[in-house]
């Protein structure tokens, strides 16, 4: 892990749904080639925050961002940013596996082909390397032309990760990527994340405290302190520190289940 290199700088970030401010005054530096987990109670804006990094929230009407999200020195909310290109650099994996109802092969080549033309040979090698990086190759190499929906839930989720990897992103956003999976598939996803962090910057939202403790190097705790108020970043630190000796009593109360 590269301790020094900061991939993303979040500065005075706030988010509005219409006139309602749901997140306020978030400042944090996200490390490159590391896994950062975002934890907090339901409804505290974790997913909203995650979707900020690839400007997915813009797909909803009446939303507004304040502050800056600076990736590699460039504020991604500046007007001249190409959102399609941004989303190529920043892939996303969702809670429920959502492969296209197409073959495994077609699922993988869908993204790369949006961006440019490839030869059949090139596509073949993208499929192979993406599936290998997603630790799925050995399980599906003989059935690339079967429908992706025939795979198990855990395999489908790894296929979705392979699909993200196929476009060579720099950052991968994961929104509860294992919450719909059984423990064995969860384990596979977690092992995979650990391998992927060597080459990608990963941000994960998770409700599973032990998962955050296991997989991430940094952890951020978001909390809405009273109803109607926006959530804020309460504590952001090394994951080990958060889970053995958090600085803030609110973090301690939340992770030890003494909340409310």
């Amino acid at each position: 892990m590269n301790d020094d290199k900061i991939k993303i700088k979040v500065r005075n970030y706030g988010f509005y749904y219409g006139t309602v401010k749901v997140l306020s005054d978030v400042n944090m530096d996200i490390q490159e080639n590391a896994i950062t987990s975002i934890i907090g109670p339901s409804g505290c804006g974790k997913t909203t925050f995650l979707r900020t990094f690839n400007r997915m929230n813009e797909l909803l009407p009446n939303t507004r961002v304040e502050g800056e999200i600076i990736i590699d020195g460039i504020d991604i909310y500046k007007d001249n940013i190409d959102v399609v290109d941004l989303r190529k650099r920043i892939g996303m994996v969702f809670q429920r596996p959502n492969p296209f109802p197409k073959t495994i092969y077609e699922n993988i080549i869908y993204g790369p082909r949006l961006h440019r033309k490839y030869t059949k040979k090139q596509l073949g090698s993208i499929v192979e390397s993406s599936l290998k990086r997603a630790a799925l190759w050995d399980e599906v190499k003989h059935k690339l032309n079967t429908n992706a929906l025939d795979l198990s839930g855990g395999q489908q989720q790894r296929l979705c990760i392979a699909r993200v990897l196929a476009v060579n992103p720099e950052i991968i956003l994961m929104d509860e990527p294992a919450s719909a999976l059984d423990p064995i598939s969860t384990q596979k996803i977690e092992d995979l994340m650990d391998e992927l962090k060597e080459n990608y910057t990963i941000i994960i939202v998770t409700h599973n405290m032990q998962q955050a403790a296991r997989v991430s190097q940094k952890a951020a705790f978001l909390l809405t302190e009273s109803t109607g108020e926006p959530a804020t970043l309460i504590e952001y630190d090394d994951t080990n520190k958060i889970f053995t000796n958090p600085r803030d009593k609110r973090t301690e109360d939340y992770i030890t289940g003494r909340f409310g």
Binding site: M209, Q210, I242, F243, T244, N245, P246, E252
Partner: peptide, 9 residues
């Protein structure tokens, strides 16, 4: 219960 923080300590 997989305790954390002060409970774990």
């Amino acid at each position: 219960h997989q305790p954390v923080a002060k409970d774990l300590r």
